[in-house]
Design a binder for these strands. Sequence first.
DNA 1: CGAGGTTTTCGCCTGATAGTCAGAAACCCC
DNA 2: GGGGTTTCTGACTATCAGGCGAAAACCTCG
Lengths: 231, 231
Amino acid sequence: MWSSPERPAYPHQALAVVLQVRARRLHAMLWRRPNEPFAGAWALPGGPLLGEETLGASVARQLASKVELGHLAHLEQLETRSDPGRDPRGRTVATAYLGLIPSHLDPELPEDTGWHPVEDLPATAFDHGSLVGSAVGRLRAKLSYTNVGFALAPPTFSIAELREIYVAALGYDVAATNLQRVLLRRGVLEPTGETAPPGRAGGRPAALYRFVQAGLEVTDPFAVFRPPCGR
Amino acid sequence: MWSSPERPAYPHQALAVVLQVRARRLHAMLWRRPNEPFAGAWALPGGPLLGEETLGASVARQLASKVELGHLAHLEQLETRSDPGRDPRGRTVATAYLGLIPSHLDPELPEDTGWHPVEDLPATAFDHGSLVGSAVGRLRAKLSYTNVGFALAPPTFSIAELREIYVAALGYDVAATNLQRVLLRRGVLEPTGETAPPGRAGGRPAALYRFVQAGLEVTDPFAVFRPPCGR
DNA sequence: CGAGGTTTTCGCCTGATAGTCAGAAACCCC
DNA sequence: GGGGTTTCTGACTATCAGGCGAAAACCTCG
């Protein structure tokens, strides 16, 4: 704790890595910087921490200028970067958040803002490229042991649709059979009782499901070294 | 990104939640605050982010005044707290780190600093109590899917000793047989080939093991939704 | 209205692994 | 050498993920 009167301060910014599954690929939201440094490069939305707001409130405020906040289904703190050289203009500290938007939404974005596949990012400003990498890593890990999927999926969906989302987000193939069984057993998913009409090519109508809980919840963190009996 | 000239700044501090297994219980390192606010309450070691240092370097610097840095076997960033009211004196932002010290060490601590069982914390200053909670949660989760155990255990150890450490850190019982088999199969542990002499009560001499890798490594994050074949 | 094609669903089998237990092995002390 | 203690090993069981194939349900076209 600082007891001495000197209390150096550095500008602090909140950044958001907003991810969404679009056209079967995981995308990140970036905007093109008009000014130096890194003029023309793509950057994460964000800005200075102000007045009496928390970092969470700050990132929400900054995001509000890019998308409708109601479209954000999930927001969590990622990590804080403090490398003195991360901004050529001078020292800054930045805290990044991970935001998720369900795949059925197509929010209107400002002119300078767009979606970029995370596997094929353009040149990014500052350390924003590696922040996207961190965010994707976090999302992929959590998809397996939490119900974050709810923040990527529409309110109701067939297993086939959910599989597409998971495949896009995870970056590798998963079997629909297994996905259904695992998520059902864990109580993450529940059937709505309704079915979706088949496509024009025919096929059996797909049963619709929804996520039981809309907030983030850690299901069964890790199967290993579990407490003796039902925790 | 801030393009306007106004760049508000708030003092930023780095805090450390240092954990160690002592006497079969998980302890956190706290020091007693001499001054207001929270005079007499227990607080996490930490202090202001200075000059050209990163947060990691800052927390290491602050810790150096409490323990010998060489004793720290692991250090990772936890989370950043920004509630404007977290310090009654004025706004601060604090980034907490998780530090681990192996159980065989007994570092000398300053007069005002001591170890406290995490399950039985005294009154803490600021939001430090909940930060200890976060740290313990992180450690417990990672014990199951990484090799962080290396940072809690001595260089070599018997399975019984390792079990004690895991039990203390996790807060619940685990079977020695299982611990050995799981950690061996994952390639986290390897036998040294040596054995420890039995205690005075006799008993078969215990085989000694070591962690294969001394740095943090994510073994097999999550068994679910694994890519088709050996990734 | 039936045949062929398409998509989803369901059931079964397999393999991997965690949890548990009991017995054998190795050592001490008396 | 016998009793006690601790550790090690192997076997058994239960659970669950991964995969496959058949059945179900629906479409379109002739």
